[in-house]
Write a protein that binds this DNA or RNA. Structure first.
Length: 287
DNA sequence: GGGGGTTCCTGTACGC
DNA sequence: TGCGTACAGGAACCCC
């Protein structure tokens, strides 16, 4: 399940392969991969062919490739199970392949960039680039808050925004308009590390508690990034199809019934927002 | 406009 | 063995 570390691993893998490369051909095998591109497949292809990729950028879980001219970008959201894979130009179809782009790089030669997605929650689009303060982002990303690894992330604003909310802190952490990049896995991990119960109302957390939580969010994201991301159900892989190792370092997520690494009590798994929360009822007391 | 619930989707795991 | 069902969850969307 790609969250910030996984998307960043993908971005970093794509960057050297596509920066400076020209898009020579695009095949859309499944239009459901273009739900973010309202104008349809022919328009999508027309806006990409012949263009040169300038870079690979990211905010939260959104990834984009700015195109020459600086007016538009190819954006990608991996959803639950999306993968961006680098393949030889004549490589056979991937399982669940939705879109294939052929690119020609001035030094690396020809390459196929494949978007594969089992559960089809992911999607690509060509979108206009717009200014967002000091940043340039696709219009579809404008409402997404900066992520905690963004140099322009404002810690004080974040603490204040969280403490204004009347919802459960975990719901607030998953709200991409408050802070981006955090999904179910890293929300559970950061809450465990901060000893905060996921159902705690955000407005009842002290400034210090929210600051500590933000520190733990940054810490868990950085550690996951260093280990290549979390590959929990084999859906997430890097651009070469390799899994990440952070699943071995999880303390709470996916460990329902197993002993808490801190106190030894059983980790509890509970339904929460149509998904699951994993926490230690002993270390993470409900206020 | 905040808050909270629903919906989209497919492969896998599991119970009967 | 085979069938049915629950489950995984990011984010847009809807209603209150």
């Amino acid at each position: 399940m790609p969250e910030l570390p996984e998307v960043e691993v993908v971005r970093a893998g794509l960057a050297p392969a596509v920066t400076g490369a020209t898009i020579t051909g695009v095949s859309v095998l499944d239009e459901r991969a273009l739900t973010r591109h309202a104008a349809g497949a022919a328009d999508f292809v027309g806006r990409l062919e012949g263009r040169t990729v300038r870079a690979a950028a990211r905010r939260g879980k959104f990834l984009w490739l700015p195109l020459d001219g600086d007016e538009a970008a190819l954006i990608a959201h991996l959803g639950m199970s999306g993968q961006m894979l680098l393949r030889a130009p004549d490589a056979p179809l991937e399982r669940h392949e939705r879109v294939r782009m052929h690119v020609e790089h001035p030094t690396h030669g020809e390459l196929a960039v494949v978007f594969a997605d089992q559960r089809t929650f992911g999607s690509l689009a060509v979108d206009a680039l717009i200014a967002d303060g000091p940043s340039i982002v696709p219009s579809q990303v404008r409402h997404i808050a900066r992520d905690p690894l963004d140099p322009f992330f404002d810690d004080l604003d974040f603490v204040a925004a969280v403490r204004r909310r009347l919802s459960a802190i975990k719901r607030v952490m998953l709200d991409q308009t408050v802070v981006s990049g955090i999904g179910n896995i890293y929300a559970d991990e950061a809450l465990w590390a901060s000893r905060i119960h996921p159902e705690t109302s955000a407005d009842r957390l002290s400034t210090q508690a929210v600051r500590r939580l933000l520190g733990e969010v940054r810490s868990v994201l950085a550690k996951a990034l260093a280990e290549g991301g979390t590959s929990f159900d084999a859906q997430y892989v890097n651009v070469n199809g390799q899994a990440g190792y952070f699943a071995h370092s999880l303390n709470a997520y996916g460990r329902g019934g197993q002993p808490c690494p801190r106190c030894g009590g059983p980790i509890r798994r509970e339904a929460f927002m149509n998904r699951s929360s994993h926490y230690c009822p002993r270390c993470q007391r409900r206020r």
